[in-house]
């Protein structure tokens, strides 16, 4: 990694808090990400535990979304993006160029900032993943998978009578839950959520948050949010990013009541955001 002297100067912060977990699902070590000339992530070290909900917070442009997109290699779709370091999912190294992203992304699903249902029916949206991955060999099996996923996303009762209508006909909150159903239909182990409620109204947001709590029983969830309240409500641990560096990671309660780092404190007290 070629760092200019200025960049090095910014590396002065040492991550404080509990970086590591006893039952890690993901082990991130020495992660550096840069876009063309500009470095976006500096030397992040972090564990994400099994079935834990971890929230990533920080001012906009702090690199939290970029960090998230590294975990299922979505940054591959950005030509200028370069990733260095190591991310281990169980025993598999994700950052290796030789890793096949297709099965990886089946294990690490992602929910995006804006609901992005495909221009297909509700049923086909959920069935899309199982179909491409060959997860159901019979129609009945697929039907069952779609129903289970919609139920787990808390959407089944609202849409069971109109499964063949286009996914885009749903309301924003329903669309986002459809996207979540679509993601869990593939039975991933980890779900990444990139500000999943940023374009939703408070009621829809509340439903999604409820859903996240339920999902955490079966999935490891990493969520990026710009809302500190949301982070406080849904997550067990919270990581605070600042200008591409992981400043502090701790028990959520701890971060919001008694942050160890002055930058974290400045952020949660609203001095910048």
């Amino acid at each position: 990694m070629n760092l200019s002297p200025d960049d090095r100067a910014e590396l002065k912060y040492k991550t404080v808090g509990e970086k590591f977990s006893e039952t890690p699902k993901l082990k991130i070590r020495g992660l550096n990400v840069s876009y063309a000339e500009k470095q976006a992530i500096f030397d992040v070290n972090l564990d994400i535990g099994s079935n834990e909900v971890i929230a990533m917070i920080g001012p906009s442009g702090c690199g939290k979304s970029t960090f998230l997109r590294c975990i299922n290699r979505m940054n591959d779709t950005v030509d200028s993006c370069r990733v260095e370091g190591s991310i281990q999912l169980d025993d598999m190294e994700i950052c290796d160029d030789k890793v096949d992203v297709v099965p990886l992304r089946a294990r690490v699903g992602m929910v995006f900032q804006k609901p992005n249902p495909f221009p297909k029916s509700i049923y086909d949206n959920v069935a899309y993943g199982p179909r491409i991955h060959g997860l159901a060999s019979r129609r009945s099996e697929l039907d069952g998978l779609v129903e289970t996923s919609l139920r787990r996303a808390g959407l089944w009762d609202e849409v069971k009578d109109r499964l063949l209508q286009p996914g885009t006909s749903l309301s924003g909150g329903q669309q986002q839950r459809l996207c979540i159903a679509r993601t869990i239909a593939v039975s991933p182990e980890v779900i990444l959520m990139d500000e999943p409620c940023s374009s939703l109204d408070p009621i829809a947001t509340a439903k999604i948050e409820e859903l996240i709590a339920e999902l955490s029983e079966n999935f490891t969830i990493a969520i990026v949010t710009h809302s500190m309240q949301q982070a406080a409500r849904v997550s067990r641990r919270t990581a605070y990013f600042h200008l591409g560096q992981l400043i502090e990671v701790n028990d959520t309660q701890h971060v919001f009541t008694n942050p160890d780092h002055q930058l974290t404190e400045a952020y949660i007290t609203g001095r910048f955001g």
């Binding site: 096949d100 099965p103 089946a106 294990r107 991955h133 060959g134 997860l135 593939v186």
Partner: peptide, 20 residues
Amino acid sequence: MNNAQPQKNSPAERVQQSLK
């Protein structure tokens, strides 16, 4: 896969089978 449900064909295995 340590998180897989105890069933004959876990999703991850099915994904692997479909890859080729």
